[in-house]
Nucleic acid binder design. Sequence first.
RNA 1: GCGGCCGUAGUGUAGUGGCCCAGCACAUAAGCCUGCCACGCUUGUAACCCGGGUUCAAAUCCCGGCGGCCGCACCA
Length: 489
Amino acid sequence: MCNMKVDEIMDVALRRGFIFPASEIYGGVSGFWEYGNLGTLMKRKWEDAWRHHFLSLDQNYYEISTSNIMPEAVFKGSGHLEHFNDPLTACTKCNQRFRADDLITDACGKNAEDMTTEEMEVAINEENIQCPRCGGELGPVQLFNMMFCLDIGAAGGTKGYLRPETAQGAFISFKRMFEVLRNRLPIGIGIVGRVYRNEISPRQGFFRLREFNQAELQIFFDPDTFDEHASFDDVAGTPLRVRPLDREEEVEMTAGDFRDRYDIGRFYVYHMVKIQEFYLDALKVPREKFRFRELSERERAFYNKVHWDIEVDMETLGGYKEVAGIHYRTSHDLSGHQEMSKQKMQVNIDGKKFVPHVLELSFGVDRNFWALLDLAFAKEEERTVFRFPPRMAPITVAVFPLLNKQPLIEKATEIYSQLASIMQTDYDRGGSIGRRYRRQDEIGTPFCVTVDFDTLEDGTVTLRDRDTMEQKRVDENSLLGEILSRVAQ
RNA sequence: GCGGCCGUAGUGUAGUGGCCCAGCACAUAAGCCUGCCACGCUUGUAACCCGGGUUCAAAUCCCGGCGGCCGCACCA
């Protein structure tokens, strides 16, 4: 059932230019996908909505744009060289690969996470651990780092890596941005861009990628104010939909109660409310398909003091899947870079010196994009339609002449040009009028405008709604206003 | 990365050694028709994943690569 839906969505996605496999004519490479014309338009609309929503939460939240390639030292400072890798061991007999640390933990209960590869090999020997599959002898433990490595400059030049997350750009630019933003806190540094992870074996089609897009906002603040937010009272009564560790299912409780019950700072909870608003109001995710899920200690990174994932229930992926996260990272990142770079990350505000803490709002753009496809897709008896929120639809409005006759074509072209200067507009005069409506339904265009012979007489056109298929006659002069107000709803 | 199955126009498929310089449906282009919701007519564009081998002959058999699906593993 849900695989069928994936196939149907992929069919439209490929045929109409939402997404397609990268390097396709050479056979493609697993984990790499590209956005076509419609996909690019929609991705941009998602990103712009994200910018609009999150960067306006505070005067001091801004977007910057940082390098995709950074030298090795950055990732020493961030901890990625040490921690962003898996210790693997292969069976010498059946070649099966295993995570060495998991084998050790399973065998003797020891926490192997911080062991070196040598220590793990010793432990495997001492505990006499064998291949769980065939009982064969296990080979040497090797670290597999998930970052793409490259050489900067000619041979023997500096070693660098493609960034595995956008966040590091914000951390290593913090010193300068703090100055630029005139030595105040909190400041927010947003980055929207590409990141790269050399996944061992990416699966789930578009959902686990080796090159993907993130939209992240790192908020730097004074840890003493973690339980404060000037606008908290405005949101204290907003019900949050959450799945805490101590509950079996989603529950709703007001932001105020949530803060008291789970002892999470107001600064954090305020941003949760704003994230939920983004999903429910801007992206129109149905409330019952949205939740915050608390991660167990085992699931979350050791430096995340508070960590909730934002999940959307997607039929194509068989349930709730992570699309974003909100992480209280403490001073972990700035402290790490301070130590490595020998640059002081400490700030001095009114005589108080401290390393700022970080609240990270992290969004997987591509996963959010897929969620839009999943939630909006509908196969009806007579048509296939994406019911995107009008603001997210790649094409906002399409203009047709009712018939392929000269005076109608002329008028329709004129209206097309007017609308096209304001919004993403399509024009189509191929096939029957019904066929053209279906074509637009298939790519989720919320509005269609048809020019007929009455238009030439009285200046009215029909405005057709994607979801209801109803039409309304609208005066040419109020057309733009009518469309804009419907998009805004 | 391992094991199983698989890879034909944009999409879905027919074809299991010569009948295929590959058939069909939908989509698409040009035109006709059409006075508001695909499914009417004409003509057209367009495919055997890549490389090697076997054979008189390969979409079809064999080997390798790439990719996909499922299971195992992995997802700081």
